[in-house]
Write a protein that binds this DNA or RNA. Structure first.
Lengths: 207, 207
DNA sequence: TAAACCCTCACCCGAAACAGTGATTGTTGC
DNA sequence: GCAACAATCACTGTTTCGGGTGAGGGTTTA
């Protein structure tokens, strides 16, 4: 018996999902909440196996609630729920411990498949969602100017917090040379200071 | 009929998987390769639906091969394959476009479940792997000192490349004040310059 | 043999960052 | 009411960064 709880601020969605699951013999309706606070309240005295969670809610959003719930109750598996099929949201939910993600207009079969997979501790995304996720990965990896090996090396050292003179000493170069590479990095990546440089480098996984 | 191809440098693994899949009626053995190069060679004149890929291989590793294959043949779904159950590897494979990840000592049932899910375009991890992934997420999120709202705001602006005077003008503060906050950020997060600060902030998702 | 890079080094200079110190105001919580 | 802290502002240094400019030697490629 899988106890399913749902958090969503749209009554229609709650009712809809409830109706879909009503006749499932191995699924028990644990209840629902319409915001983060009352969800947290429910779990003070109750529990569930699978938590369907809307991503966008008034007050605290699903992303944040997901992190809190997972931290408090690691044994509860969370299934993200959204009308939007946006890679960024999916990724953030996963980073906060969700076990899957489905669209609100999913078919009953997809919903059940996801609930069962998640309840077993598996991680599951339907093809539709997985496509969005992979497209997001791809889009966030658009072409960057090529960096020479030396530049990559120095970029790494900058990111580790070394100053030009320190880098120079470390790899036996003149501090002027290191400075040249540094300026080339700024120019090539089209950023204007160290902060933007490092942010870009980390986000685009250059280091 | 799902055509399955495998890349792994261990003959034992290839044979083992081959044996497991031999009697499956809906699975066709497309072939195998023992390194990245011959895998790429195979797909010049052939194709497959699902590609089982070892993560650690001599020469080019699975992580890199995964990215190349996905870029050349986006329609082929890749299932990571490893003896190690390490979150970092799993995450990297996913970032490079894999659709799932299983352990080499998985049961036949798990293997088949994964292949079928992946072939449909779904993303799937078994419970065992998913646990490793979630523990990895958690471990990379250890306690950080609390930042005040103002500090977070200024941290964000620094990451966007604004200088102290620019930030001061933007949020109507003295440039001295911004500088104070900046110094507090360095002290609280125990880093010594902007580069380390931004790196930490991006990696730990403070911004 | 050019052109196009990469890597190296050099100098000037203004702007920004970083270190240290100290101060006032206001809020929160015990 | 006092301690703790967030938020604000101020001044003085020293160090680092970043813009500009240029130069010489190396390799690869057209």
């Amino acid at each position: 018996m899988i106890r399913v709880f749902i958090v969503d601020d749209h009554p229609v969605v709650i009712e809809g999902i409830h109706a879909l699951l009503q006749n499932e013999k191995d699924i028990e309706w644990a209840g629902h909440a319409m915001n983060a606070a009352s969800c947290l309240g429910f779990f003070l005295n109750n529990t569930a196996d699978v938590l369907l969670m809307d991503i966008s809610m008034p007050g605290m959003d699903g992303i944040e609630l997901c992190a809190i719930m997972k931290q408090k109750y690691p044994g509860i598996f969370i299934l993200g729920l959204s009308t939007f099929n946006q890679g960024l949201y999916i990724k953030k939910m996963m980073e906060n411990g969700a076990s899957g993600y489905i669209l609100k207009n999913s078919s009953k079969e997809e919903l059940l498949k996801a609930i069962h997979a998640v309840d077993k501790g598996d991680i599951f995304f339907s093809g539709e969602v997985s496509q969005a996720l992979q497209e997001y990965q791809k889009s966030s990896m658009i072409q960057l100017p090529m960096l020479s090996p030396r530049e990559k090396e120095i970029l790494g050292l900058i990111a580790e917090g070394y100053t030009n003179p320190q880098i120079a000493e470390k790899i036996f170069l003149s501090s002027f040379t290191v400075d040249s590479h540094r300026k080339n990095l700024l120019a090539k990546l089209n950023v204007k200071n160290t902060a933007s440089l490092i942010r870009l480098a980390v986000e685009r996984k250059l280091i």
